[in-house]
Structures are given as structure tokens and as C-alpha cells.
Design a protein around this nucleic acid. Structure first.
Lengths: 215, 215
DNA sequence: ACCTGAACACCGTTCAAGT
DNA sequence: ACCTGAACACCGTTCAAGT
């Protein structure tokens, strides 16, 4: 029994204490996230994850309903990480207008740094988030962060009046669309490299900003 | 031999004349597009496409290098259809500013009408479009339509000065992001139904328009 | 030139059986 | 409670063989 646990830990290439006390569920999520990061959403398989965790191919089914449930756990962690990055970005500036700009930059930066993760968070692998309440909640919380920033900007006169939901969707659509186009290589002909992508992001975001601010 | 052709035609549920003269390649693309439309990109398999076309599982490999090549053909057709819808939309209005608005509406409408098709056109199933020259060209041509509309709007004073590429990317990112969020169900809690989605699209697009026009 | 049949190495999922 | 081993029905791709 003890040998088995050790096999699991070394199979992941990890060597930290307390591996015995960990649940296999957490190990599987970690292995899944790593696998997605390496080979993309396409190259992901439940059997390979089990192999990396050092367990049989049937073992994951004790902890997750199936492949989609494991991916949902990975996606949930992704939203938690994105929300943390956005919260941190917001704290970097004082005035609401530049806070919004920082939020957008953080979003695109996260997308470029973790493209495969973003695909799992938004892609068709999980057709209905409401089937995974924890994931659904994490996604809602992330959007809530943006909505709060919009609200504050409106109160400070740094965003035009109007339905805050519309403004938030506009901002979200812009950064999400730009991230998707960059990740999917749609702009690869004319935008080379991460640095150029970030510059494009700030120029493009500014164009929307003018519409959102209204002056 | 003739019996075989007939079997192919009826297997697709079609009964048009001239089926004998058609190439299997075209049949496979049609069957693939239909399958994707029904079951989404996930439920697509090359074997099932072959079954629907009434041929053996190895037959497609004579016409396509593999699964990705067949998907690339489907995606190419998608870009051709999208470009046609955009060109038609543009002809509906005279002044450049409302032409841009019509382009955006057409994009979102296409996405909502053919969500699975859009995913193939942009998703990770085809990681590198340059590996499929015809697809790459069709995608470029579609973006070129948007770029031309931006250029014309700038000449008419209906769009602010500046790098037309930046303006085009902003517009593209906005409608693409909104389409993605709608398709992926990210707004399902607060936007119910196609009609409400279209209304949201026109409100949100207007917010960007103010930034693009600059007055 | 174009297609079939059989094969290989994978995959997700289930289920009896073990501890 | 938690995991294994074996099985089932799939999948993408290859390749000799047919016509």
C-alpha cells in the first residue's frame, strides 16, 4: 500500500512530503492540468491522466463521474486563477478608468500564458456549466469582478451611464474575442510574439474605452 | 459499381440526379458538415462520416490526408459562407457607418445560426491554418472584407483616423468575442433566446462604434 | 485510380472482483 | 471505501489486397 503511494508521487515527477495524505482526486486534477498545458485540449485523455497519476484506468471513476467532470474541475481552477489575477491587477491602480484597463490587460495576459486552460474554461468540452455547480459559481464570480469594476467606474463618472451589464459584456467580449483570435492563431500573419500581442491589446482596448467612457 | 453509387446517395438520405458523377470527396464534406451541425465538434468522427457516405472507413484517406484535412475543408466552406453573408449585409446599406453595423450583425447572426461550424473555423481542431492553404486564403479573404469596410468608412469620415488594422481587429474581436460567449453559454443566465441575443449584440456593438467613430 | 477488409494502437466507460 | 483487471464498443490510421 505504501509502495503504491510512492509510485504515484514519483510518477508525477514530484517528491514532496505528505503525498500519502493527499487524495487521488487532487492528484488527478493536477495531472490533468499539466497534460492539457502540454498537449492542448486535443491531446488530453483520461487514461493518460490515470497513467501519470500511477493508478489504473478505472480509478478516476471513483472520484469523478467521467472525463467531463474532471475537466470541469480543471476549468474551475482556471477561473479561480483568472479571478485572482484580475483582482490583483485591479489593486495596481487607483482610479477606476485605469483599473478597467488593467483588468483587460490581465485577461489577455492570462489567456496568452494559459491558452489551453482558457479553452477548457470556455470551450465545448463542458457544454453546460450549470451541470457543474462549483465551476458555474467560479465563472460567475469572475464576471462579477468585472461588473463591480464597471459599477465603480460609473459612480466615479469614469464610465458612461447605462445598463452596467451591457458595458460589462462589451468589455468582456472585446478582451475575450481578442484573446481567442490570438490563441487560435488568427492574427499570426501580422502579430508576431507575445510582446506585439500585448501592444495590440492595449491599442484595441483603448478604442473600446473611448466608447465606454463617452468622452 | 453502379449499385455502390446508389447506396452512397441513399445513405445520405439524398435522391438527386447526377449523384453518380459526384466525387466522394464532395460527399464527405457534406456529410461531415451535417454531422458537425447535429452533434457538434465533439460528436464528430471520421468513421461515422464514412458510414454516412456509404463507404468503408478507409475510403476517406484516398481523398483527404486525415481527419484534420476533412475538417479544414468544412471550415473553408464555413468561411466562404460567412464571407457571402457579410458581403450581402454590406450591400443592404449605403453609408459606411451603418455598413459596419450590418457587418457585425451578420457575423453574430451567422455564429448563432451555425455554432458548430464556427467552432471548427476557429477552434483547436485545426491548429495551423497555413497547413491548409485554401482554408487560410478563405479566412484571409473574410477578414479582408472587414478591412475594406473600415477603409471606406475612414475615407468617408465615418471612422476615426489611425491604423485601419487596429480598428478592424477591434471590430472583429468584439463580434467574435460576443459570438463565442453566446455560443459557449456564458451569458445563458441573463440572455435567453436568439432575439434577446441579437438585441444585446446591437447594443454592445454600438458601444464600440462610439469609440471607433470618435464622435 | 479508387476502394475494401483486416489489423494496430489507442480511447471512455462499466463491472465484477479484490483489499 | 477505494482500487484493479478485464471487457465492450468505439476511434484514427495504415496497408495489403482487390477491381
Amino acid at each position: 500500500m505504501k509502495r503504491l503511494r510512492v509510485r504515484r508521487a514519483t510518477a508525477r515527477g514530484l517528491d514532496r512530503k505528505g503525498a500519502d495524505a493527499e487524495s487521488l482526486a487532487a492528484d488527478l486534477v493536477i495531472a490533468a492540468a499539466a497534460l492539457i498545458g502540454e498537449h492542448g485540449p486535443q491531446g488530453f485523455s483520461l487514461r493518460e491522466v490515470a497513467r501519470r497519476a500511477g493508478v489504473s484506468e478505472a480509478a478516476p471513476y471513483w472520484h469523478f463521474a467521467g472525463k467531463e467532470a474532471l475537466l470541469a474541475a480543471v476549468a474551475e481552477q482556471g477561473f479561480i486563477n483568472l479571478a485572482a489575477a484580475m483582482a490583483e491587477a485591479r489593486e495596481r491602480s487607483k482610479d477606476p478608468r485605469s483599473q478597467l484597463r488593467e483588468l483587460g490587460v490581465a485577461y489577455v495576459r492570462f489567456a496568452l500564458a494559459h491558452p489551453s486552460h482558457l479553452r477548457i474554461m470556455f470551450g465545448p468540452e463542458i457544454p453546460d456549466k450549470t451541470a457543474h455547480p462549483a465551476l458555474h459559481q467560479a465563472a460567475e464570480r469572475t464576471f462579477g469582478l468585472l461588473l463591480a469594476a464597471i459599477n465603480e467606474a460609473q459612480r466615479a463618472g469614469d464610465a458612461r451611464a447605462g445598463n452596467p451589464f451591457d458595458l460589462a459584456v462589451a468589455a468582456w467580449a472585446m478582451v475575450h474575442g481578442l484573446s481567442s483570435l490570438l490563441i487560435d492563431g488568427q492574427l499570426r500573419d501580422r502579430v508576431r510574439g507575445m510582446r506585439e500581442a500585448q501592444l495590440l491589446a492595449s491599442r484595441v482596448t483603448k478604442l473600446l474605452e473611448m466608447g465606454l467612457v463617452g468622452r
